[in-house]
C-alpha cells in the first residue's frame, strides 16, 4: 500500500463522516459520523507510524480512541436524557439555545 492510497482512503472516510454529520438528523447516526471522522485520522496516524518507523503515531491513535470512548459515554448519556424528556430525536427541533 502506497502513501497516496492511504491518504486517499483516510480523506474519503473523513468526508463521508463530515457529510453524515451535516446531513443526518438522528443524533445517534451523527455520533457514528463523528466516530468515522476520528477513525479516519487514526488510520492515517497508524499508517504513518509504520511508514516512518516511529511509535508516536500509534500512541496518538490510542489516546484518540480513549478520548472518543469517554466522549461517547457522555454523548450517549446526553442523548438518552434528551429522549426521555422530549420523546423526540430530531436535532433540528432541539434549538432551546437559539439567540
Amino acid at each position: 500500500m502506497g502513501e497516496q492510497f492511504v491518504l486517499l482512503i483516510s480523506a474519503s472516510i473523513f468526508c463521508v463522516g463530515t457529510a453524515g454529520f451535516v446531513i443526518r438528523k438522528n443524533p445517534l447516526i451523527m455520533f457514528m459520523s463523528v466516530e468515522l471522522m476520528l477513525n479516519s485520522v487514526n488510520f492515517l496516524l497508524v499508517s504513518y507510524s509504520s511508514f516512518l518507523n516511529s511509535l508516536d503515531g500509534q500512541i496518538f491513535a490510542l489516546m484518540i480512541m480513549t478520548v472518543a470512548a469517554a466522549e461517547v459515554v457522555v454523548g450517549l448519556a446526553i442523548i438518552l436524557t434528551i429522549f426521555r424528556t422530549r420523546h423526540d430525536m430530531d436535532v433540528d427541533h432541539i434549538d432551546v439555545l437559539k439567540g
Partner: peptide, 9 residues
C-alpha cells in the same frame, strides 16, 4: 443574534 439558531447541524 439570528446567527445563533440553536441548530447543531
Amino acid at each position: 443574534s439570528l446567527w445563533q439558531s440553536g441548530k447543531v447541524r
